[in-house]
Computed example of a mutant assay.
Amino acid sequence: MPANPKYLNPSFWPRFSKITAAILGGYFVSVTFHLALAAWFSRKDVLITMAFSGFILWVALMIIAFLAKNGWKIWGVYILLSLLFCLFIYLGQTYNTAQ
């Protein structure tokens, strides 16, 4: 049974933006989230846990990217989340090395 044509994107760029947001954007958000946790908590424990929870988070972010209507908007959300987590990494490293 073929897919309903109204749900298919015939253009290249919307498809490309969703695929890259799902793969790259989801990976960046997943990694920066876990590195932000590692900056504030026990680094060894967080990085060991990241092997499993990072993959689960990445898959969830991939699904969210494909459910979004606009791939460029989801790219913007993923970039903002990555930058926010980078700020938490910076603050965690600054705060924890000052003590």
Rank of each mutant, 00 (worst) to 15 (best):
R43E: 15
I19N: 05
A3W: 11
F41V: 09
F85A: 05
T94E: 09
W72L: 08
F85I: 01
Q93M: 13
T94S: 12
S17V: 07
T97R: 08
W58I: 05
L87M: 09
Y7E: 09
L57W: 08
L8W: 03
G71S: 00
R15C: 08
N96E: 08
G71E: 00
W58D: 00
T94P: 06
G54H: 14
Y90C: 01
Q93H: 11
G76F: 00
K73R: 12
K73V: 13
K6I: 15
I63K: 06
L24I: 10
V77E: 00
L87H: 06
I48T: 12
L57M: 10
T32A: 04
N96L: 13
G76M: 01
A36H: 03
G54Y: 12
A51N: 13
P10M: 00
M50C: 14
S53E: 14
M50T: 14
W72R: 09
S53Q: 12
A60K: 01
W13P: 05
L91T: 05
L91V: 07
G92D: 01
A38Q: 00
L57Y: 02
F16C: 05
V31M: 03
T97H: 14
W13N: 09
V59I: 11
W13C: 08
V46T: 13
V46N: 11
L37E: 14
I74Q: 13
I23N: 02
Y78V: 00
I63L: 10
M50P: 05
P2A: 14
P2S: 09
L67P: 02
F55A: 12
L91I: 10
A51G: 15
S30M: 10
A51W: 08
K44T: 15
N70M: 02
A98L: 11
L87I: 10
I63N: 02
G25F: 03
N4F: 12
F12P: 03
Q93G: 10
V46K: 04
I79Q: 06
L67G: 09
I56L: 14
K69S: 09
L87R: 08
A98R: 13
I64W: 10
K69A: 14
Y95Q: 12
A22I: 01
S17T: 14
M1A: 15
Y90Q: 10
L37D: 04
A98F: 11
K6Y: 11
D45K: 14
A39N: 02
F88V: 05
L57G: 07
V59T: 06
P5E: 13
S82I: 00
L83N: 04
I23E: 04
I56Q: 06
V31P: 00
I74G: 01
M1N: 12
P10G: 02
N70L: 02
P2V: 10
P10S: 10
S53F: 13
L80P: 02
I64R: 11
N9K: 14
K44P: 10
F55S: 10
W75P: 03
P2H: 07
V31A: 07
L37K: 04
N9Y: 14
D45P: 01
Q99D: 08
L47D: 04
Y95A: 13
L84T: 09
F12T: 08
T32V: 04
K73I: 15
A21E: 03
G26C: 06
A51E: 08
N70Q: 06
I48V: 15
